[in-house]
C-alpha cells in the first residue's frame, strides 16, 4: 500500500448558486492510478479543477473544504498556485497543444520556470520519450504541434506536462476525442506513468477505468461520491446498489 498523496476532506464545489460537489472525502494514494467515474454532470471534471485550483479562472466558481497535500491545505489562500500547478499537472479532454512547434510546446513549461537553455534539449527528448512520441517526432521537432494527429497531439500534451516534472498528473477524459487505436496507446502510457507519478483520471468510459486504474471512485449526479475502493472490487462486487446499477449499465 503506497503512502497517501492527497487527502480530500469535505470538499464542496459551487458554480454561482449551483452545487456540483457535495462533501467529498477521499484519500488518493501515491504512484497509483485513481479513476473517477460517473455520469455526466456528476462534478467529476470540477473535482479535477479543484485539485490544481484551475477552477479559479471560471467566473463564479467556489470551493469549500480542505485538500491536504504535502502537509498543507492546497486550497488555502496563501498557497503559491503557480508552484502548485508545477507539481500537479493536467491533461485536458480535447488535446490543446499551443500553436507553436513541437519542441516549443514541450519546452514551454521549463522555459517559464527558468530552466537553462542547455538543459532544454535533454528535457524535451526525455519527456517525449516518456510520452512514447519521440520516435515519431524526433525528425520534425520544428513542425507545429497542430500538424500532429489527435492521438499524437494528446501525447504531446502529456509530454508537455511531464516536462515540468510534476508529482501528480490529472487527466480529464483524455481519450474522449480520440479513436480506439490512439486510445489504446494513451492507456498503455497511463499504465507506465504510475511508476513515477500519481495519476488521477476522469473518465465516463467504465471499461477504460477498469483497464487502467488501481482505485476507482464513483460519483453520481448531484456531486456525491457514493463508493471508493479497489477497482477490482468496485467492478466485481460493489457495495452500493446504485453503483452496481451504474456499472452494469442500468442507467447513466
Amino acid at each position: 500500500m503506497s503512502a497517501t498523496m492527497l487527502t480530500v476532506k469535505e470538499l464542496n464545489f459551487y458554480y454561482s448558486k449551483t452545487q456540483v460537489l457535495r462533501d467529498v472525502n477521499i484519500e488518493i494514494p501515491g504512484n497509483e492510478v485513481t479513476a473517477i467515474i460517473g455520469p455526466s454532470g456528476c462534478g467529476k471534471s470540477s473535482f479535477l479543477k479543484a485539485l490544481n485550483r484551475l477552477y479559479e479562472i471560471i467566473p463564479g466558481a467556489r470551493v469549500t473544504g480542505e485538500i491536504i497535500y504535502n502537509g498543507g491545505n492546497l486550497l488555502s489562500r496563501d498557497v503559491d498556485v503557480v508552484g502548485l500547478r508545477k507539481e500537479i499537472g493536467m491533461v485536458f479532454q480535447r488535446p490543446n497543444p499551443f500553436p507553436k512547434s513541437i519542441y516549443a510546446n514541450v519546452a514551454y513549461g521549463p522555459r517559464l520556470h527558468g530552466v537553462k537553455r542547455k538543459e532544454l534539449d535533454r528535457i524535451v527528448e526525455e519527456s517525449l520519450r516518456k510520452a512514447g512520441l519521440w520516435d515519431e517526432v524526433k525528425d520534425k521537432l520544428n513542425k507545429s504541434g497542430l500538424d500532429l494527429s489527435g492521438g499524437e497531439q494528446q501525447r504531446l500534451c502529456i509530454a508537455r506536462c511531464l516536462a515540468v516534472e510534476p508529482k501528480i498528473i490529472l487527466m480529464d477524459e483524455p481519450c474522449s476525442a480520440l479513436d480506439p487505436i490512439a486510445t489504446a496507446k494513451i492507456e498503455d502510457l497511463i499504465y507506465n506513468l504510475k511508476q513515477d507519478y500519481t495519476v488521477i483520471i476522469v473518465t465516463h468510459n467504465m471499461q477504460q477505468a477498469a483497464r487502467v486504474s488501481d482505485k476507482t471512485a464513483v460519483f453520481l449526479t448531484g456531486g456525491k461520491m457514493v463508493e471508493y475502493g479497489e477497482t477490482v472490487k468496485i467492478f466485481e462486487n460493489p457495495e452500493n446498489k446504485i453503483v452496481e446499477d451504474y456499472i452494469t449499465g442500468k442507467f447513466g
Binding site: 503557480v82 480535447r94 497543444p97
Partner: peptide, 26 residues
C-alpha cells in the same frame, strides 16, 4: 480557444505569462 489558456495555466504559468506567451501570439 480557452484550452490554450488552461493549458498554459496548468503548466504553472502566471496569468500574465499565459497571456503573453500563448494568447497574444495566437
Amino acid at each position: 480557444p480557452q484550452g490554450f489558456r488552461e493549458g498554459a495555466l496548468a503548466l504553472g504559468a502566471t496569468k500574465w505569462q499565459s497571456v503573453y506567451t500563448v494568447v497574444l501570439p495566437t
